[in-house]
């Protein structure tokens, strides 16, 4: 796919990197000449200019882009970039600068398809690092829905059982499974659960504690992210 990323700062550049790693085409738009040059040296296509100006975005080939990420630290510029991009039929993603605004932009900004608040994910990562242990929040999917990675321990009641025997609460779903030390993959029914194996589960906050008891074996603080 083809993307336009407005802002080559800490959020925009990292986003461009992961898109490039996934073999997508990316054009960055950046106002600051020094930043633009540095990113260009990193092998990116960079357009130096104001991403809230239609002509600049058109030079970045907005017309053939699938989506635009407005990821600068300036909310006004981000919003205008999204409006222009929507006009040209792009999917739009807006970075916000304060968390209460998430609700406002989701509700009122019809030209914005998705809202991202990078600090929220940063807080989840920091909390995981601080708390440690056998469950790790991967992402907040929705207000009440979290994706969590659990590690099977010797205390796990499901130890030795197979995935087909694993019964999770109604509002929880096993998404991926990985044997100890191996990358996670789509779960297969016949694999047995041993200490060190990792399970990625999508679950409602209300049942996270139960899922943790079933897979990890101990109880305790359930909701992990909630940042």
């Amino acid at each position: 796919m083809q993307f336009v990323i407005v802002g080559a700062g800490r959020v925009g550049l990292r986003t461009a990197r992961v898109l490039r790693e996934a073999d997508h085409e990316v054009v960055l738009v950046e106002t600051d000449p020094t930043t633009a040059e540095r990113v260009r040296e990193d092998g990116f296509e960079v357009l130096e200019g104001d991403g809230s100006v239609e002509d600049v975005l058109l030079q970045a080939d907005l017309e053939s882009a699938d989506a635009l990420g407005a990821l600068t630290g300036d909310l006004n510029n981000n919003f205008v970039a999204c409006m222009v991009a929507k006009h040209y039929g792009c999917r739009t993603v807006l970075r916000i600068d304060e968390d209460y605004r998430e609700e406002i932009y989701r509700k009122y900004a019809s030209d914005v398809d998705e809202v991202v608040y990078p600090e929220r994910l940063g807080a989840i990562v920091a909390k995981n690092a601080l708390v440690g242990g056998n469950s790790r929040a991967v992402a907040d999917i929705h207000q009440n829905l979290q994706m969590v990675e659990f590690t099977v321990t010797p205390r796990s009641p499901m130890r030795g059982y197979s995935i087909s025997e694993l019964e999770l609460p109604a509002n929880a779903e096993l998404l991926a499974f990985g044997k100890k030390g191996e990358p996670v993959d789509v779960p297969r029914d016949d694999v047995s659960l041993e200490p060190g194996d990792e399970l990625i589960v999508l679950a409602d906050f209300d049942v996270l504690g139960d899922v943790r008891s079933i897979i990890v074996g101990d109880t305790g603080r359930a909701a992990l992210g909630g940042a």
Binding site: Y100, R101, I104
Partner: peptide, 8 residues
Amino acid sequence: KAHTGNAN
């Protein structure tokens, strides 16, 4: 400038 998401 607000500090709540309840703009309505």
